[in-house]
């Protein structure tokens, strides 16, 4: 029998991430993606965490090694609820996010409400 070729995809619940600090979240994501996994985050990251993840990714890129990540999230929605308006800072609702190694995950198409991605099983 031919061993099953494939990649691992982890669906990460909002609850799992909510127990982590921003630094832990970014570390967790980077470690998973560097080991070749594709992550689907139920709730995504805050814009600040996304920026931090991009920075961390850049520090880890190596020639002929890790070439970075592919990350796709939806534009966040500004919280227009009553509570959101009371809080001075703009409360943003982040949304589902897909993150994977750049050499294995390619975004085919994306619009406000749909992400279509291609996952390659050969590097």
């Amino acid at each position: 029998m031919i061993p099953m070729q494939g990649f691992q995809m982890d669906l990460v619940s909002e609850h799992r991430l909510s127990t982590m600090s921003p630094v832990e979240k970014v570390r967790f994501i980077i470690d998973e993606v560097k080991s070749g996994k594709i992550l689907v985050l139920e709730k995504g990251l805050s814009p600040e965490e996304e920026a931090h993840l991009i920075e961390m990714t850049m520090t880890l890129i190596e020639p002929d090694g890790f070439s970075g990540i592919e990350m796709e999230s939806y534009p966040s929605e500004v919280d227009t609820s009553f509570i959101g308006k009371i809080l001075k800072k703009n409360a943003l609702k982040s949304r589902l996010t897909v993150i994977g190694p750049a050499d294995q995950l390619k975004t085919l198409k994306k619009d406000r409400d749909m992400i279509s991605a291609l996952i390659s099983t050969t590097k």
Binding site: S46, P47, E48, E50, I54, P75, S76, K89, N90, L92
Partner: peptide
């Protein structure tokens, strides 16, 4: 990400 950071 840029838009999100400005909005936040």
């Amino acid at each position: 990400t840029v838009i999100g950071n400005m909005e936040a």
